[in-house]
């Protein structure tokens, strides 16, 4: 479950092409990052996969079903944590399930505890820090029944320290709940640290420029960030981005 296949996808806003022949797959249980400069069309890609936009050409397949323009088949977290301000944390994390008609309160409470948010079940989002809100948003994705989780730059608004904590936390919780994850970022280190594979996009109109398979074994910890190999990968991918986009990083 959670196998995504993007086949020759094209999308333009008016006569401004954004995606041009986008083509890649995400395998079952895989963690794939999409790395691309700002404005290259990453969010647009998610809106297509999520079905609130229709592609101009090409197909999107999820577990053998064509999901062009079909909503509700993936679990998505926008760039902002997007918790509903009027719902308690507990009710927020159950929202994805609630929309699909299946609520598991016990599992929700369990995951809230795992996210270090015990005691905040009945708090409103404004009472939480940025990192806590992101964790709650991610739990909401895990509690949603869809097999593929799409995260759009979830950590970009966090400071460097919180960011590393969140990355480690994300890896540990993902290891226990095997789901496919498609993760958008414009941070090279983050992509290497988290992913099985990294898809590098060109500037707009975006196509897949290169795909890197990251060989580091799991579980990974932060010591990895200081190794020679990690640095070597950083260089490789930085070069992979090409001269035309390097100025954006």
């Amino acid at each position: 479950m959670g196998e995504l296949s993007i086949e020759h996808l094209f999308k333009a806003y008016g006569n401004h092409p954004v995606l041009a022949d986008m083509h890649f797959t995400v395998n079952e249980g895989e963690f794939v990052s999409i790395l691309g400069p700002s404005g290259s069309g990453k969010s647009t890609l998610f809106h297509l996969i999520g079905g609130i936009l229709e592609p101009d050409a090409g197909d999107i397949w999820l577990d053998g079903e064509k999901i062009n323009g079909k909503r509700g088949s993936i679990s998505y977290t926008p760039q902002t944590p997007s918790l509903l301000p009027w719902r308690s944390i507990l009710k927020n994390v159950m929202l994805g399930g609630e929309i699909q008609g299946n609520i598991d309160k016990n599992e929700a409470i369990e995951l809230i505890e795992y996210a270090g948010l015990s005691g905040y079940e009945n708090a409103y989002p404004f009472e939480l820090s940025g990192g806590m809100k992101q964790r709650a948003a991610f739990i909401r994705s895990l509690l949603s029944p869809q097999p593929l989780i799409c995260l759009d730059e979830p950590f970009s608004a966090l400071d460097e320290f919180t960011r590393l904590e969140m990355q480690k936390w994300l890896l540990s919780i993902w290891q226990e709940h095997h789901r496919s994850i498609l993760f958008v970022t414009h941070n090279i280190e983050e992509a290497i640290f988290l992913s099985d594979r990294i898809i590098v996009l060109s500037q707009t109109p975006a196509y897949v420029k290169e795909i890197f398979t990251i060989p580091f074994s799991r579980p990974r910890d932060e010591d990895l960030l200081l190794t020679e190999e990690f640095l070597a990968w950083k260089k490789t991918i930085y070069r992979g981005l090409g001269n035309d986009v390097q100025k954006n990083y």
Partner: peptide
Amino acid sequence: DLLHYMKMAGAGKQQVFWKLEWP
């Protein structure tokens, strides 16, 4: 962003109204 979230999560018009737009 919230609207996009609700729609992609598969919320219908009624759910979007009562769970998001009204509150």
